[in-house]
C-alpha cells in the first residue's frame, strides 16, 4: 500500500523554482499494476524516485505499508529500498566489472545473506529468467534484452513488494521490449505491485491503471476497462 499525501518536490534551476511534483495525492494498493505516463519534465520520474525513496519530497508525507517513511533516517530508508522495492532502469545500470550472476547477487550481498543461501537464490533467478548460460558473462558481453533480464532478476531477487520500472524498454527494440514487459507482468502476477513509468502509449495501455501527468500534477487517473 502506497499512500502519497500532498507531495511536493521543487527543483531549483538557477533562480527559478520548478515544481516537479505539485501537491500530489496518490494511493496505490498492493498488487496493482500502474503505468505513469506523460511528456518529459512532467514529473513522472521524480514521482517514481519518491515512491522508491531515492528522493525526498520538500513537503507532504508518504506512507508505505501503513508506516510514514518520509522522516526515516537514511539507513532505515536504505533498508526499505533493499527489502521492499526493486528498481528497473532504462539504462539497466549493471556493474560493468561484475558478471551477470554477481550483479543479480548484489542486493543479497547488501542484505548480509550467507553465501550458500545467496547461491541458491541466484541460481533460481538465473533459471527463471533463462540466463543460466549467461551467468558468467559480463554486461558488455550481453545483448540489451539480456541485460534488462539481469536487471529484472536483480530487482526481484529480494522478493520486493513493489517493482518500480523507469522506462524499462526505452533502450530496447519493440519485440525485445515486449518480452521484457511480459517478464515484469509475470512477476506482477505473483502479487507484486508494478509501477511502470513510460511515454510509450501502447506500453502504458497494458497497465490496469493508467496515470497521466503534466507539469507535476496528475491529470488523468483511470482504470483500464479493456482488461
Amino acid at each position: 500500500m502506497i499512500q502519497l499525501t500532498e507531495i511536493t518536490r521543487i527543483f531549483h534551476m538557477g533562480d527559478q523554482a520548478v515544481h516537479a511534483l505539485n501537491e500530489i495525492n496518490l494511493s496505490i494498493k498492493s498488487g496493482e499494476y500502474v503505468s505513469i505516463m506523460g511528456p518529459s519534465g512532467s514529473g513522472k520520474s521524480t514521482l517514481l524516485n519518491i515512491i522508491g525513496l531515492l528522493d525526498k519530497p520538500d513537503s507532504g508525507h508518504y506512507e508505505l505499508d501503513g508506516k510514514i517513511v518520509t522522516d526515516l533516517s537514511e539507513t532505515e530508508q536504505a533498508q526499505i529500498r533493499r527489502e521492499k522495492i526493486g528498481f528497473v532502469f532504462q539504462t539497466f545500470h549493471l556493474v560493468p566489472r561484475l558478471t551477470a550472476a554477481e550483479n543479480i547477487e548484489l542486493p543479497l550481498i547488501l542484505s548480509g545473506l550467507a553465501p550458500k543461501e545467496r547461491h541458491t537464490r541466484v541460481n533460481e533467478a538465473l533459471l527463471a529468467f533463462e540466463l543460466q548460460d549467461r551467468a558468467q558473462h559480463r554486461p558488455s558481453e550481453l545483448s540489451g534484452g539480456q541485460r534488462q533480464r539481469v536487471a529484472i532478476a536483480r530487482a526481484t531477487i529480494m522478493r520486493p513488494t513493489a517493482i518500480l520500472a523507469d522506462e524499462p524498454t526505452g533502450n530496447l527494440d519493440h519485440q525485445i521490449g515486449a518480452e521484457v514487459m511480459t517478464l515484469l507482468e509475470n512477476h506482477h502476477k505473483t502479487g507484486t505491485t508494478l509501477i511502470v513509468v513510460t511515454h510509450d502509449r501502447e506500453l502504458g495501455a497494458r497497465a490496469h491503471r493508467q496515470i497521466a501527468m503534466r507539469d507535476g500534477k496528475i491529470m488523468i487517473d483511470q482504470a483500464n476497462d479493456t482488461i
Binding site: T75, H93, A155
Partner: peptide, 16 residues
C-alpha cells in the same frame, strides 16, 4: 558515480 547510485537504489546505505 552511477554505480554508487545503483548500489544505493538497491539498498546500500552510506556506511556500506
Amino acid at each position: 558515480t552511477t554505480e554508487i547510485g545503483l548500489l544505493k537504489a538497491i539498498g546500500a546505505n552510506t556506511t556500506d
